[in-house]
């Protein structure tokens, strides 16, 4: 964090390391965030998007990965429309760190890390907080990673949105989740007012029009009426409750404009923290574990990060 607030945002930690961002889906903030994180740490960051690359010539994910491995890259940051694509690469590549920057509707782990970081920074703790995630849970990899992350850190997570946009297991949790599963305790409701009651964190999810293939709800008008997070609704939450959004926002749909830019919003901080969290992650995964163990000079530099 400290490095990001300096006049000259540059430390030599990852000098001579090569990081490729391999994006099979459109992205602005995540890709730039990783790129900035890498560049601040002095890594050479190469951006590759599926459009305009050999992927368009039909190259498979495996061969693209093997090609990057042969070029000696240290880390691949991958975003892919299919769940498990990073796992697939990690299984087939050797000596290359693979970082998941979002895979299908499965996970977006760095987003969850930055969300956790932001909440702890603002509220001082995670244990025992009530976290409400509102909107299109079914198509949201952010929701799934947050669900996992916040549950693991001892928060009570409530999901709220149209029943048609909830994974069906959550609609019949007693049948679906094995006993003692960490996610078995997740609450679910379609009533936003009830969900927000006493909440410490309210996270609005982007309505993912590009992932929805059929009409999951009657109209945007009805969606807004039932599930838009507004100043009015937030009154039911705790006094210092945080309003979050993974971005990009559809202002006026899942979140009202005044709330998005109001005092309780930490949406901008989420973005800043994203760079810091990704710097930490790149450091962890790119620097040789042995060097860390030896408490070499790189570790002392890392402490400055």
């Amino acid at each position: 964090m400290e490095v990001l607030s300096r006049d000259i945002k540059k430390v030599p930690t990852l000098r001579g390391r090569v990081i490729v961002t391999l994006f099979y889906e459109a992205s602005t903030r995540t890709r730039i965030s990783f790129e900035e994180a890498g560049k601040v740490l002095s890594a050479d960051v190469i951006n590759m998007s599926a459009a305009g690359s050999s992927v368009e010539k039909g190259e498979s994910l495996l061969n693209t990965g093997l090609t990057l491995q042969a070029m000696g890259v240290d880390a691949v940051v991958i975003r892919h429309p299919h769940a498990g694509a990073p796992h697939f690469l990690a299984r087939h590549l050797e000596g290359v760190s693979v970082i998941n920057a979002g895979d299908g509707i499965h996970a977006h782990p760095t987003q969850a890390l930055l969300d956790l970081y932001t909440v702890r920074e603002k509220l001082g703790r995670l244990q025992g907080l009530k976290v409400v995630i509102v909107g299109d849970v079914m198509h949201s990899r952010v929701a799934r990673s947050d669900l996992w992350g916040f549950s693991k850190m001892g928060c009570q997570v409530t999901l709220c949105g149209p029943a048609t946009l909830m994974p069906s297991d959550f609609l019949r949790p007693q049948q679906a989740w094995p006993d003692a599963h960490p996610l078995a305790g997740v609450q679910i409701t379609t009533d936003l007012d009830q969900a927000i009651d006493g909440a410490d964190v309210v996270m609005a999810l982007r309505l993912q029009t590009e992932r929805q293939t059929t009409g999951f709800f009657p109209s945007l008008r009805e969606y807004v009426r039932r599930w838009q997070v507004t100043e009015d609704r937030l009154r039911r939450a705790r006094p210092n409750a945080l309003v979050m959004h993974p971005g990009p926002m559809n202002e006026g749909i899942e979140i009202s404009t005044d709330l998005a830019h109001g005092d309780s919003s930490v949406i901008v901080e989420q973005v800043t923290n994203g760079v810091a969290v990704r710097m930490a992650l790149l450091y962890r995964l790119v620097i040789d574990q042995a060097a860390i163990n030896q408490e070499g000079p790189q570790l002392s530099r890392a402490k400055a990060v």
Partner: peptide, 11 residues
């Protein structure tokens, strides 16, 4: 469809 699919983010 089930908790494993939900966990893995697979349709």
């Amino acid at each position: 469809e089930g908790w494993v699919a939900t966990r893995l983010g697979l349709p």
